[in-house]
């Protein structure tokens, strides 16, 4: 039952797993599917695992899950589309998340977001053309005490003034 721990670790290892063979990634996915006895009730948990393993929910992976759990592929896509956490397009190497929760909003999150959009020349939800950065907004990351908050990959940066952002982002290459 160290599943969730693995889940968390696998996110940070995502660069390394990409190099591993397709086959073994599907094998890893199978472990999770078997763990839940192929139950359709575990669809969301399995999608979580798939997204960590593959980086995003590729069409063939979605079809595979649909077959294994015996859920129509339309329904699987219905679930994927409903939840903001799932993505059907590849993410950049680094994900930059700007928290736009109330506390961050009050302390200038929008200004922060606009600044990053300008720096990276993309809008929230997009990925830079070189595939290096994806930019998205979060509802609230629960670190309101140090608003405004910026999350790059797994690192939370608090009290981010617009001026510091440029250098901060450049540290992630």
């Amino acid at each position: 039952m160290k599943k969730y721990q693995q889940m968390i670790e696998s996110v940070s290892r995502s660069g390394a797993t990409a190099a591993a063979s397709e086959h073994s990634i599907f094998e890893e996915l199978n472990v999770t599917i078997d763990h839940f006895d192929r139950s359709p009730l575990a669809l969301i948990q399995i999608l979580h695992r798939a997204q960590e393993l593959f980086g995003y929910l590729r069409d063939d992976v979605v079809q595979y899950i649909s077959r294994e759990l015996r859920i129509p592929v339309s329904k699987v896509h219905g679930v994927i589309g409903f939840y903001g956490f799932f993505s059907r397009i590849p993410r950049g190497k680094h994900t930059i998340t700007v928290c736009t929760g109330t506390a961050c909003y009050v302390r200038g999150a929008v200004r922060l977001l606009r600044g990053i959009e300008k720096q990276l020349e993309i809008e929230s939800g997009d990925t830079t053309t070189d595939g290096r950065y994806s930019l998205r907004c979060a509802r609230c990351v629960g670190a309101c005490g140090i608003a405004p908050v910026l999350v790059i990959d797994d690192d939370v940066h608090g009290d981010v003034a617009s001026k510091r952002v440029k250098n901060l982002i450049r540290q992630y290459k």
Partner: peptide, 25 residues
């Protein structure tokens, strides 16, 4: 443990139950 997937409405009781069952919330 069941992990959610980023939908505010899932804080509502019946939506939360649907989500635990792997469905749209």
């Amino acid at each position: 443990i069941r992990v959610g997937a980023g939908a505010f409405v899932c804080g509502e009781e019946t939506a939360l139950i649907a989500s635990i069952e792997g469905k749209r919330g």
